[in-house]
Nucleic acid binder design. Structure first.
Length: 429
RNA sequence: GGAGAGGUGGCCGAGCGGCUUAAGGCAACGGUUUGCUAAACCGUCGUAGGGGCUCUACCUCUACCGGGGGUUCGAAUCCCCCCCUCUCCGCCA
């Protein structure tokens, strides 16, 4: 959420941000109207409470013989005042819900303000490619999609995954199952070597946690909920990691916090029917190594650049060609002020596909979760960043495609050999 | 799952309808003293939202004692519901 004071003081900035995002700038004016009414009520309510507090104190003094007066008259007056107060309080509560309620208040429908360096544009067509790395491989034979390669090896069985759970689930067997483990071990090893603290969080989160992260209530239909429980399967480790210090005031010396975590991720993929139905690109359960930083506001954009580099390093280590794209205002996520996507090359689709998304959420998430830090007596909100480092399943799919050979076997990148117990290729048994 | 005991400021801990404006202590910060350190002494010392104003200051009000509701002129204190922690029992990877 944005700072209400920022919206009051610089409404034009927020209106422009909404317009750039193809959102409704009128939200600002609706919010300001509610805010004004709320504050007027606040003044009257506080005045009445003050009067009541005084009178109650007087009644107490009279009863203990420290003052003179008619208790009955005062009590009757305060009863009437109490009725009036109750009416005003109920009114204010209604306005408060419209203004600030996480489940639908106007403030919570206003997205983060894009950074000045974000390209302005209506949708993904306005995204800007920042750089490319690696050489796109050429094949002297007809390339196969990753699922064809995996099934050809006898190590990927999507039909039986469907029997076990349903469509959009994955079953890997033998060396391909081990490849999954090898990949996330490699990722965690590299990230921890570069200053990230490894974290193993719960894969289930409660409503408060998901609300603070912005997944609830807006994206409820993207989540798997546990029946009979107020719990959800996490859609990403970003959810628990950004909530670890929720509601706390940190010491400035604790910043920056850099964390990495491997978790399964669960997404309903509601609304994605028909998209990426083939293969394991878009599934209900996938593994991901996540990067999260909680940093001082002054350094957050530098931290974003280094986070992207940290994610890129994985692809470089694996020798997978990719490009980095800066998202435009129209494509930016709700929480993000700036986002880079990393897209890896998929030969069978003849295009780059997203394998990581790294965002600076500035103070937007921290404010929502009331994560703060104290510096020179001042209390401020830190900036939070999150990025995939990387999506393991998509990484595995990219290896199957980019390293496939004509005979159906797949070479393994050298960096993985130690993680595969010396195995240098995948070959049908 | 059953029985009991608890949740009060950064921490410890008193308070159990009005002398609380949440005592006292520890820690922290500023100062005095000191050759240095320590000690002692003095002061400051929660968060949030309003209002005033001569607007980085200052004055002032309100809310918050796990969360939510209720009783009352008045609730940390009484009542109801929920959450969490601890101890014991049961079950269990």
């Amino acid at each position: 959420m944005l700072d209400l004071k920022v919206i009051r003081n610089t409404p034009d900035v927020v209106r422009k941000a909404l317009a750039d995002r193809q959102d409704d700038p009128g939200k600002v004016d609706r919010l300001l109207a509610l805010d004004s009414e709320f504050r007027q009520l606040q003044v009257r309510i506080d005045g009445l409470r003050e009067e009541r507090n005084r009178a109650s104190k007087t009644i107490g003094a009279i009863k203990t013989g420290k003052a003179e007066g008619d208790v009955a008259v005062l009590q009757e007056d305060m009863r009437k005042l109490g009725d009036e107060l109750k009416t005003l309080e109920e009114r204010q509560k209604e306005i408060e819900l419209e203004r600030m309620d996480p489940a639908g208040g106007v403030l919570f429908t206003i997205p983060n303000i894009p950074h000045e360096t974000v390209p302005v544009g209506p949708d993904e067509s306005a995204n800007v490619e920042v750089r490319r790395w690696g050489t796109v491989p050429t094949f002297s034979f007809g390339v196969h999609s990753h699922d064809e390669v995996g099934e050809g090896l006898g190590m990927l069985d999507l039909a039986r995954a469907t029997k076990l759970a349903g469509a959009r689930f994955v079953l890997q067997i033998g060396p391909l199952a081990r490849l999954e483990r090898a990949l996330y071990n490699l990722m965690l090893d590299l990230h921890t070597q570069h200053g990230y603290t490894e974290v193993m969080p719960p894969a289930i989160a409660n409503e408060e946690t998901l609300t603070a992260n912005g997944n609830l209530p807006k994206f409820k239909d993207q989540l798997f909920k546990l029946e009979e429980w107020p719990y959800y399967l996490i859609p990403t480790a970003e959810v628990p990691l950004t909530n670890i210090r929720r509601g706390e005031i940190l010491d400035a010396a604790e910043l920056p916090m850099r964390m990495t975590a491997f978790t399964p991720c669960f997404r309903s993929e509601a609304g994605a029917a028909g998209r990426d139905t083939k293969g394991i690109i878009r599934v209900h359960q996938f593994d991901k190594v996540e990067l999260v930083k909680v940093v001082h506001p002054d350094s957050s954009y530098d931290e974003l650049e280094s986070m992207v580099n940290d994610a890129e390093r994985i692809l470089q280590t694996l020798g997978l060609p990719y490009r980095v794209v800066a998202l435009s205002t129209g494509d930016l996520g709700f929480n993000a002020a700036k986002t880079y996507d990393i897209e890896v090359w998929f030969p069978s689709q003849n295009k780059y596909r997203e394998i990581s998304s790294c965002s600076n959420c500035t103070d937007f998430q921290a404010r929502r979760g009331q994560t703060r830090f104290r510096e020179d007596g001042q209390i401020r909100f830190p900036h939070t960043l999150n990025g995939s480092g990387l999506a393991v399943g998509r990484c595995l799919a990219a290896i199957l495609e980019n390293y496939q050979r004509e005979d159906g076997s797949v070479a393994l990148p050298e960096a993985l050999h130690p993680y595969m117990g010396g195995l240098t290729e995948l070959r049908r048994a």
